[in-house]
């Protein structure tokens, strides 16, 4: 297949009119060109996405420079814009989400890849992948009517009563908070961690396990000391992917985080996130500076997820290729 491709591409003398016409007539060159254009469209779209975000955030970049990222005031009336509360909120909620989702997801992935019989594993994975397909606004809906009251009446008071001395858990909780957003996010990203990690664990060669078991390791020791370390970078990749999802998640977070542009140490306090502020204020933004400040927030989010995704893909690629090379 690749040999024929090479002749089409590198056909130096083929540009002689006659040969060219013949190639044209049987459609190969035309098909090649047309599909190439459509494939290149993806690069064009991604590039123009970045260009437009950059172009349309020129005003705040000129007005605030790097201070945009490090100041706390978000005051549309006096046109002072600082993104720190939103960046803090985004990072905080994602961190909380990972804290809860990584152990759960990794545990489930180990069960599905190592223990469960193939049929059960496939069945459960199917269900878990359905979970990933549930629209995020529905997680938000359940968040508003189930998780928020739950945090307000059960989790919040419990945390406050037992650890209220530590500033992290200081009340009073209103239900809408960093913790609530983190909880909803963790439910949303668990399926990603499970399905990617499971695939990566399954790519670990069987002889690794057999070697560990034959040396007298228990099942758990072979899994935890041999299989998981072997798949380590791929698992990190899956966590980065999930993190990128969590950072960019808009609807579910907007609905449960409380939408208060403040930095609070307590995870029971309401906050705000980058995606949420864009969703809430974009249509109401008056004045170019205000609107462009929101676009710059979009740019920050774009770059953040872009870098994370780029690293995640490379890690996953490296692990799966190493895995197949050993087979």
């Amino acid at each position: 297949m690749s040999a024929t491709t090479a002749t089409v591409q590198r056909a130096g003398p083929a540009w002689a009119p006659r040969v060219f016409l013949r190639r044209l007539a049987n459609g190969d060159a035309v098909a090649h060109l047309i599909t190439l254009i459509f494939a290149a469209a993806v690069i064009l779209i991604t590039a123009s996405l970045f260009y437009i975000l950059w172009r349309d955030s020129a005003l705040p970049r000129a007005a605030f420079g790097w201070n945009f990222l490090f100041t706390q005031t978000w005051d549309p009336v006096f046109e002072k814009f600082g993104a720190l509360p939103f960046i803090y909120g985004t990072l905080m909620t994602s961190f909380l989400a990972l804290l809860m989702a990584v152990p759960l997801g990794l545990g489930a992935a180990i069960f599905l890849a190592e223990l469960a019989p193939a049929r059960i594993s496939d069945g459960l994975t199917f269900v878990i992948e359905l979970l990933a397909a549930v629209p995020s606004v529905l997680y938000g809906l359940l968040g508003v009517f189930v998780v928020v009251p739950f945090v307000r009446t059960v989790v919040g008071p419990a945390l406050e009563n037992s650890f209220g001395v530590i500033p992290f858990f200081k009340g009073p909780g209103y239900g809408v908070s960093f913790l609530t957003a983190g909880l909803v996010l963790s439910i949303m990203i668990v399926p990603f961690i499970i399905s990617v990690s499971r695939e990566i664990l399954m790519a670990v060669p069987v002889d690794q396990r057999e070697a560990a078991l034959s040396l007298g390791a228990t099942r758990w020791e072979s899994t935890w000391r041999v299989v998981v370390p072997y798949a380590r970078s791929g698992i990190f990749g899956s966590i980065f992917l999930a993190l990128a999802r969590a950072l960019g998640e808009t609807m579910a977070v907007t609905m449960v985080i409380g939408n208060v542009p403040a930095i609070s140490a307590s995870i029971l306090a309401p906050g705000y996130s980058i995606a949420a502020v864009i969703a809430n204020e974009f249509t109401e933004a008056t004045g170019d500076l205000y609107l462009q400040a929101l676009v710059e927030l979009g740019l920050v989010l774009f770059l953040l997820t872009f870098i994370l995704n780029g690293m995640a893909r490379l890690l996953i690629l490296a692990t799966t290729q190493k895995g197949t090379a050993h087979e």
């Binding site: 993806v42 779209i45 991604t46 996405l49 437009i52 975000l53 349309d56 992917l241 990128a244 999802r245 950072l247 960019g248 998640e249 808009t250 995606a275 864009i278 969703a279 974009f282 929101l294 676009v295 979009g298 989010l301 774009f302 997820t305 872009f306 994370l308 995704n309």
Partner: peptide
């Protein structure tokens, strides 16, 4: 592009 947050696509 698959990983770009949907809100950014909206912008």
């Amino acid at each position: 592009l698959n990983g770009v947050p949907s809100i950014v696509i909206g912008i």
